[in-house]
Nucleic acid binder design. Structure first.
Length: 221
DNA sequence: TGTTGATCATGC
DNA sequence: GCATGATCAACA
C-alpha cells in the first residue's frame, strides 16, 4: 500500500489491516529496516505508517491526506493503552498575527479530522517488535473545539503582544506552546515586549498528553 | 513519575 | 531556516 487512499473508508481499512502487527513486519513489507531505538530516529514510526497508509510525502503545511482532509498522528502508548507523549500539531506563527482567526489557523485545520494510530512506546521493547494498536478516526466535539479555540486565542494573543518568551508549557488546558527547533541556536523572528523585532526559538503547538489520554480512554475502553 | 524545555533526522 | 515526523532527558 503506497498509493494515496481513494477515500476515508479505504484509509481506515488500511489502518485496521495493520492493527496488531509489529513495526518490523510493516517495515519488511516496505523493504526498509527498523532502527534499534528511536533516539536518533524520532520520527521513524510516523513516517513508516505514512508510507504504509499512502500519505502524501513532503513537509508541506497540509494534512497528510489533503484530498480527504485527514491528518495522521501516531501516538506512543504504554501497556494500558495510555499515551506517553504529547502530540505535536503545528508551528506557531510568531509574526504577522494581526487579524489571524482560529478558524483560519493551522491548528484548527489539522485537528478538524485526525486518524490516531497508537503504537507501543515502551523503550524496553525493540522498535521492530512494537505492536500497532487500533486506529481511531476522530473529530473534536463542540466542547473540545471551544476549549482548543480558547487555548489557541490566549496563546496567540500573548505572542502578538510580544510576550512569546514569557509563555511556558504550563499554559493551556488542551494545547501547549513549546520550543520546536533543531537546537537552542535555531532562532526565528518574533515580536518583543516593546513591539520591536526579536530573535527567539521557534515554537510549536502541542496537544497535552492528558488530553489524548482521555481521548483514548473514551474510545478504547 | 509526569512535564517542560531541548533535541534528532530529513528535504528543500 | 522552516516544516514535516516526533522523542529525549533533565528537573520539579
Amino acid at each position: 500500500m503506497h498509493s494515496s487512499p481513494k477515500d476515508i473508508e479505504q484509509l481506515l481499512q488500511r489502518a485496521h489491516h495493520i492493527a496488531g502487527w509489529q513495526l518490523g513486519e510493516i517495515a519488511a513489507e516496505l523493504g526498509i529496516a527498523a532502527p534499534h531505538d528511536l533516539r536518533h530516529h524520532k520520527g521513524w514510526v510516523g513516517q513508516l505508517l505514512e508510507h504504509w497508509l499512502g500519505a502524501s510525502a513532503g513537509s508541506r503545511p497540509e494534512p497528510d491526506f489533503p484530498h480527504l482532509g485527514v491528518e495522521l498522528k501516531t501516538v506512543p502508548i504504554d501497556a494500558n493503552y495510555k499515551p506517553i507523549e504529547s502530540t505535536y500539531i503545528s508551528v506557531c506563527p510568531l509574526t504577522g498575527l494581526r487579524g489571524l482567526r482560529w478558524q483560519d489557523s493551522a491548528v484548527c485545520h489539522k485537528l478538524s479530522h485526525v486518524l490516531w494510530i497508537p503504537v507501543q512506546g515502551d523503550k524496553s521493547i525493540p522498535v521492530a517488535q512494537r505492536h500497532v494498536g487500533m486506529p481511531l478516526l476522530w473529530q473534536p466535539t463542540a466542547d473540545e473545539q471551544q476549549q482548543l479555540q480558547r487555548d489557541w486565542e490566549e496563546l496567540i494573543e500573548q505572542v502578538a503582544l510580544g510576550k512569546v518568551e514569557s509563555i511556558t508549557a504550563h499554559q493551556g488546558e488542551l494545547l501547549q506552546l513549546r520550543p520546536k527547533a533543531a537546537n537552542r541556536k535555531a532562532l526565528t523572528e518574533a515580536i518583543g515586549p516593546d513591539g520591536c523585532k526579536i530573535n527567539t526559538l521557534p515554537r510549536g503547538f502541542y496537544l497535552r498528553t492528558s488530553f489524548t489520554k482521555l481521548l483514548f480512554q473514551r474510545n478504547f475502553s
